[in-house]
């Protein structure tokens, strides 16, 4: 095979995937940027260049700031908790506890179920007066509370569902990492007199650092990407108390049909994901240390 034909073959093999990728990832990303500088066409009025007006409007939009704040709390609420639980689950499932198979199944099951379906189940769980949660709090003599209908608890309810759905998924990555650690490291540590906690703190946890960073990046992405349960459980309410950025984009674009403003909001989301990408690069650097 000569060099010219190697180039041509390579390009031909890549072409179908490249066309689709360009059409549905790269082009829309640039189109978003372009449209964020235009106005939304209305009826016979075509889109016109408005410069930074959409961004100006965004800065003055209290809902945008509330949604961004919600997303921040959502990330802070879901990420550390689901990662910590995932690590705990992985250590347990990797060990030789009784009923290991059942444990693994129980932890992992939420991952394979559709978010939309589990959101329905949880919706029922949180239902006022006769949902399971109400029954439990009622039995304990606590006052009745509308968990999803109250501004103070709606977002927290979504956070709980997300942790429940994600922890088992992240557990898998930790499990894979734990299984790749040579058992002789634990033996060497035991001979040197290290206890379980010391070994976890000084050996396992540092060795799992690349996995933790990988999971962290995924968790950050998910915290901006997962909005299915909002559609089912709260529709962003009450009063946008549980709306996240992507959900707001969805509402602006497909409920208020303000596509230009939705584009500007999408640019913010892309910027946040770009920041996560930089984090991943740092993570790749780190990872090479051990290999």
């Amino acid at each position: 095979m000569n060099r010219a034909s190697a180039h041509i073959h390579g390009w031909l093999l890549l072409l179908p995937a490249a066309v689709l990728l360009a059409a549905f990832t790269h082009f829309p990303a640039f189109a978003t940027l372009w449209h964020s500088f235009l106005s939304t066409p209305k009826g016979a009025r075509p889109a016109v260049w408005v410069g930074l007006d959409n961004y100006q409007g965004m800065l003055e939009d209290p809902v945008f700031w509330q949604v961004l704040g919600n997303n921040l709390w959502f990330a802070l609420g879901t990420i550390p908790a689901s990662i910590a639980l995932a690590l705990l689950m992985a250590v347990w499932v990797n060990g030789k506890l009784a009923g290991r198979g059942f444990l693994r199944m129980a932890y992992f099951t939420p991952t394979v179920l559709p978010m939309i379906a589990v959101a329905n189940i949880w919706l029922f769980f949180y239902t006022p007066t006769y949902g399971l949660l109400e029954q439990v709090t009622g039995t304990l003599g606590l006052p009745s509370h509308n968990w999803l209908g109250s501004q103070s608890t709606a977002l927290a309810c979504l956070i709980v569902v997300t942790i429940w759905k994600e922890a088992g998924f992240f557990m898998i990555f930790y499990l894979a990492a734990l299984q790749s650690i040579s058992p002789s490291l634990a033996e060497a540590a035991a001979i040197e007199g290290a206890g379980r906690w010391y070994y976890f703190r000084r050996v396992l946890f540092p060795l799992l650092m690349p996995t933790t960073l990988f999971v962290l990046v995924n968790a950050v992405i998910n915290s901006f990407r997962l909005v299915d349960h909002i559609v089912v459980m709260t529709r962003g309410g009450p009063d946008n108390a549980s709306a996240l950025l992507l959900f707001y984009i969805y509402e602006v674009a497909f409920k208020y049909w303000d596509s230009a403003y939705a584009s500007a909001l999408t640019m913010v989301l892309l910027a946040l994901l770009g920041a996560a990408a930089l984090l991943q690069f740092a993570f790749l650097e780190k990872r090479t240390h051990y290999q």
Binding site: F254, T266, L269
Partner: peptide, 13 residues
């Protein structure tokens, strides 16, 4: 990073 999941506006267009 930039999944189709977040490019809903343009992909719908």
């Amino acid at each position: 990073m930039v999944m189709p999941d977040v490019l809903i506006v343009e992909n719908y267009r």
